[in-house]
Design a protein around this nucleic acid. Structure first.
Lengths: 135, 135
DNA sequence: GTCGGGTTGACAATGATTCTCATTCTCAGT
DNA sequence: ACTGAGAATGAGAATCATTGTCAACCCGAC
């Protein structure tokens, strides 16, 4: 740790880059298992444990978003610069990104009011999209 | 199904009642495992699988809320009549309930705008509470 | 009392995630 | 370029929540 490295920052490695690349260029969320399969299919030979470690590392540093499927499996996505939330179809899994300045403001107001600091929040809207609604 | 039972509705049983009771009178969320241990401690002898089944059943019928801990474990809570969200301290785990009509309105507006119906949403705010903030 | 269908409990099976540890690799200083 | 120190990796085992299986059980209906 000399100067170009952020304190406590992750050391860049080909494997980590591969994991990050796997999340880049896809707008869907990917589970760790999927990332692993994808990399294996490309012959990267990155180990599953490494995928988990890399994802956890990036999630820690705010480079990727983590959320949970309904079955509890963790899914990851490259975090865009603007904080946004997701609208997920419970049937086909389609996701739509939505931004909510109103929500952002509301959460920080509420939290501050209760003396909370260093905030982060998760908002997920689950519903049935127009295509899947067949009644 | 005779008359007082809704078609396909759950049949009331001592075990199910016990599970529901375990969630009553506690304001915290409880994991299925915790409910099971609690019941075992009371000598109820309710099986773990039954706890899971009962919780899933009640969650299906909207009697309990389900959400996920950070480690992915599902936690359940008796659903109150008013939908509310939680402010959680990442350090001491204290939870504060907050209501947000603004959020409710915003989510349903956004979702409808994208053609989504039959909505549900999860909002969790994580931060450090005043007591735990020592700098 | 008997029948039938939902319910239960013990245990196995599944599947994601984490741990372990020996090997490998990166980086900085020489 | 070479080396040493420490971080990172990969393979598989270990962990742990959750779900599936199935025979025994209970409650209400006839």
């Amino acid at each position: 740790m000399t100067s170009t490295e952020q304190p406590g920052g992750p050391r860049p490695t080909p494997q980590r880059q591969a994991v990050l690349d796997a999340l880049t260029g896809v707008e869907d969320f990917r589970s760790a298992q999927e990332v692993h399969e994808l990399l294996a299919g490309e012959g990267s030979g990155v180990g599953l444990a490494t995928v988990y470690r890399a994802l956890a590392l990036y999630a820690d540093h705010g480079l990727v978003d983590v959320l949970r499927r309904e079955d509890g499996e963790a899914i990851y996505r490259r975090c865009s610069d603007t904080h946004h939330h997701h609208l997920v179809c419970r049937s086909c899994g389609a996701t739509v990104e939505v931004e909510g300045p109103a929500v952002e403001k509301w959460t920080s107001a509420i939290a501050t009011e209760h003396g909370f600091s260093d905030l982060s929040h998760t908002l997920e809207i689950v519903g049935t999209c127009a295509d899947c609604r067949t009644d």
